[in-house]
Design a protein around this nucleic acid. Structure first.
Lengths: 352, 352
DNA sequence: TACTCTGTCGGAAACCTTTCGGACGGTCAA
DNA sequence: TTGACCGTCCGAAAGGTTTCCGACAGAGTA
């Protein structure tokens, strides 16, 4: 593996323009890019320079500039595993959209880093290629964490709690607990008293899942309802396990799934098992996306404003890069509940 | 808008290592990065250099290297409008995944360009920041097209036909016509004779839509069926228009939607209007994704191998960048039909 | 002894921009 | 007349690599 460098591009450089016009490169730089401290140039000279640049089709070399300025105007978005974007909930896509739109608006560029580059992500900013990072998955290697928390690297955590010790990291997140409160209020308001919280095997201990569950428990309690151990269900093979669960007549009249995909699958399995939603069973999910509009029935779900969140994260990162102190170190967005067709007044005794 | 450059990073450089060990920077470069033509260094010296590098925590400066080598090991993926990724079909997500995975595997990096950078995309490779481009939307400005077709810029078109005049551009695509043949065979095999092709307003003239329609027409003809003008429907407001269409009793027993989202919406509207799928109406879509698994009923759809296609595109681009002649200038992938639950034997006379 | 290799490395240019300190000529006021 | 000051610009260093050309010492050969 020894990639060859390319030959000279033959592109026109600052110097060639300087020679053409008969001035110094400093003057040209000043006129064309507005850079350079106290260098000043008369209008006439400026015109001549601009003219020559146009005539010779000058193209600035961004690398040389970056090398000199130690800035690339590019930030990295780091994922755990890029495949998850494709397989996972639409959540990540909206995140990508939000980050990208805000960066582009500010003439920054975006590069994508994935788990195989994970250890390399900080290296990439250290080696000058990136001005900052947005984490949507915190790194686990101690070494990487340390580099991140050293504070030398501008970065913000988007919906992933940074390690507790790190007080310096900006954290943009959504109010998972508040989202669960909305669900609790909605379902209890419809008369539901026996409600199940559904998790996916392997995701029980993610910060999101825990926060949503905790919030749900708390706010049910506020309504005088205890979320018992048997009310928290973890499915690993939903197809089979939902069937036996629904056959068990547990008496639940509503079901709150920790994420959107899980909820969609529950709807599907309900249909399969002949459980009518919402007549016999109300279903709520977390993460309200276009996806929820096409399920049958349309899914009632908590919507976290992921795009605005992503935009805010990008905005703060840019501030950090420009050297401004961030306006806040922890920005938490409220959720709203999109009520659609999968929830209704509680049936007498749940699934018949 | 005058972003300030940062101060010196204080990072260790090649030169400092050279001084520490008492050799030239050329030797250090050779040992640490394997670069540099005929420079050779003894094992002992190499060990000393590596040792010093480790001790001083040397971090190579990628920008300096890129400036010198005229290579950045980064390629750009250019979208028409990044928002479409979020709003649109999952198609783009899988594309992103494919491109990214292949690039990462080869230690390249990926940056995302969107329509606002569109004219700037080629500029970005000209100014040295990118080694090549993958277009998933062809630029329309003549000026940009010209730059692209000049052949100086390594690039490949992914599922978007490059302008005819450009014989130099590599084109990776899926066999839309073949996909439509699968649909024709499947539906005719189930006894359908009156089939509608459904388009979305504003998308009728996209290359994809035209190819799918043309292929469908051709292959229906092979079965002795003419696709009449009235069989090609364009919905702009699907909710209202589907209702009146289904009320019109056109006698169609099957419906082929030009893309996945359209098909999903048709399913939804059918449910709303009381049209039973697949008993009264069979529905087929184009682009088989996880989405199709959760509709009710699960959607029969043509699957284009978008991820492998994207990987192939990336692979070819890397060849181009490394200076190899591409193995092919036009790579076309076959589609398959994922038969699910939205198609069945034709009913007597279509919608009752 | 004179010579050619071969292995090991140094020196310096090149890549292209930005920035710093100062030069130079002129105006203006005391 | 002299000093301060301003507008305009230059020269050179700096940023960190990679690569070309050639040097130098020792080994082998005729």
């Amino acid at each position: 593996m020894s990639p060859k460098g390319r030959q000279r591009t033959g592109a026109i450089t600052l110097r060639e323009i300087a020679e053409e016009v008969g001035v110094s490169t400093a003057a040209v730089s000043k006129v064309l890019h507005g850079r350079g401290g106290n260098v000043r140039v008369s209008d006439a000279t400026a015109v001549a320079i601009r003219d020559a640049a146009q005539r010779l089709r000058y193209t600035p070399n961004a690398l040389a500039r970056s090398l000199r300025m130690n800035r690339t105007f590019t930030v990295g978005l780091v994922f755990e595993n890029f495949g998850e974007i494709a397989a996972g909930p639409l959540y990540y896509v909206h995140m990508l959209d939000g980050v990208a739109s805000e960066l582009f608006r500010n003439h920054y560029r975006l590069t994508i880093l994935s788990e195989i580059d994970h250890g390399r992500a900080v290296e990439t900013v250290c080696d000058g290629r990136l001005d900052g990072l947005i984490w949507c998955k915190m790194p686990e290697q101690a070494e990487v964490q340390q580099a991140v928390m050293s504070g030398k690297i501008p970065c913000v955590a988007l919906n992933v709690p940074p390690p507790k010790e790190s007080l310096g990291i900006v954290y943009v997140s959504c109010d998972n607990e508040g989202g669960s409160r909305l669900v609790a209020d909605h379902l209890v308001g419809l008369g539901h008293r026996r409600i199940a919280f559904v998790l996916e095997k392997g995701e029980e201990s993610t910060p999101d899942a825990r926060a949503r569950l905790a919030g749900f428990r708390t706010h049910l309690a506020a309504h005088g309802i205890d979320l018992l151990e048997e009310d928290v269900i973890t499915f690993s093979n939903t197809a089979a396990e939902f069937r036996s669960w629904s056959a068990a007549r547990t008496g639940h009249t509503a079901l709150y799934a920790w994420n959107e995909r899980m909820a969609a699958e529950i709807l599907h399995r309900s249909h399969e098992c002949g459980v009518r939603v919402p007549q016999e069973l109300s279903v709520v999910g977390f993460d309200s996306t276009q996806f929820c509009e096409t399920t049958i029935p349309r899914l009632t779900a908590v919507r976290q404003p992921i795009k605005p969140m992503a935009q805010e994260a990008a905005r703060i990162l840019l501030d950090l890069i420009e050297g401004c102190a961030p306006s806040t170190y922890s920005s938490r967005f409220p959720c709203v509940l999109d009520v659609r067709d999968s929830t209704a007044v509680a049936s007498a005794a749940g699934i018949r």
